[in-house]
Nucleic acid binder design. Structure first.
Lengths: 209, 209
DNA sequence: TTTGAATTTCAACAATCGTTGAACTAACAT
DNA sequence: ATGTTAGTTCAACGATTGTTGAAATTCAAA
């Protein structure tokens, strides 16, 4: 069995993702982790600290593989600029592939990010803290791929991208209802096939001069 | 001063939007509403019922004006089909205009919807219950505007639209950080100018045959 | 075998939670 | 004036909340 600290993080990740920070009690988390309540305060400072550690556990790895994907795309274009599709693919595909290939390990974390990204309270602050350095790097690449575009158009385009991506992470099952079962929230392969093309067309339309 | 029931709904709407259903206590709501705690249970059955009434208070009006906007677009095209931009405009503009023109009245409700749409727990169920009849009506219109398109492409395109729209509703301030102040989450006029074109280009790219 | 540190258990704290019943006031019909 | 009803206040219920201190256990190093 996993060491206690990991089991607590796993349980907290899943419960926070489903019911939010305040919708889950330490006792529920520790019951799911099969450990005594007090151990939460031996391994973590507080409930808030536990939440932060859940976030931090995976964020660096995600930023790493996404940066590497962008660098590889740029390495493939030593003389010209990569296309918008390639850049957006490097931004989204590492995340989506992870989710498609190891769903059990990543789905709850992604659901948590979906929730935070759309949380009016401190969503902007948290997402900026964890992801903005990487995102700025991608936006710079997009700026070069879309020369003479208005920066405001670019930021709003990224905003639309962010909303589309994180709603995918939420896996709410709504598209299952809407399509009468023809589409499934958990069918990430379908998203990998469609999202980069959809978003790249939007970027090119909005940032065309 | 507003009647008590309205004040409770106003307070609950704002607090639920900011901290989620379980992140807010009845006592906090009633303190903000400047009314006794017990009045919550005189005017509503339970906390859950209060939440439902917050949702229901505005949803019918929203569905009405959006349906009317679609019908007007279709009336303008008695012989041919409306464009994708026109349909998406009818879907999004009534909502965004309301938010732009009467921000204080609508922003909290929209933030609540953003949160629910991205909630893995019962987000899909709730959104489907309140909005799917209207959404199906719009998707039918889009089907006619994009003949011979694969229905799965259409549903996934709508999914991306939904994510982009509701992240706008969340008004998290993240785009403010990311753009160094050049863009503002609350600047809905900028979204009205950009979102229909961005999304229509995505739809046409993905659903082109 | 003794020591000391890391880990776990148990019991409890004040505060807050959603909810309820009974009493009280206001306004209005008879 | 009397009765009825809608609206409001007050006090309290058992349950659960996040958190803590001290005791018990485990386990490797000395």
């Amino acid at each position: 069995m996993h060491p206690t600290r990991e089991r607590i993080l796993d349980a907290a990740e899943e419960l926070f993702a489903h019911h939010g920070f305040e919708g889950v009690s330490i006792r529920q988390i520790m019951t799911k982790a099969e450990a005594d309540v007090s151990l939460a305060y031996y391994h973590f400072e507080s409930k808030k600290d536990l939440f932060d550690q859940v976030m931090l556990r995976r964020v660096e790895y995600l930023n790493e593989i996404r940066l590497k994907a962008l660098e590889e795309v740029e390495k493939r274009h030593p003389d010209d600029e990569p296309t918008v599709e390639e850049i957006i693919g490097a931004f989204t595909r590492p995340l989506l592939s992870l989710l498609a290939e190891d769903h059990d390990q990543w789905s709850h974390y992604y659901q948590l990010i979906a929730q935070i990204n759309n949380s009016p309270d401190r969503g902007g602050e948290l997402m900026s803290r964890y992801f903005d350095p990487l995102v700025s790097r991608f936006i710079d690449a997009l700026k070069r791929a879309l020369p003479d575009s208005d920066p405001e158009d670019l930021y709003w385009s990224y905003h639309f991208l962010s909303g589309a991506l994180t709603l995918t992470f939420a896996e709410t099952g709504r598209i299952d209802n809407l399509s009468g079962g023809a589409c499934k929230s958990t069918d990430i392969a379908s998203v990998i096939d469609r999202m980069p093309a959809f978003l790249a067309a939007g970027f090119r339309q909005l940032c065309k001069h």
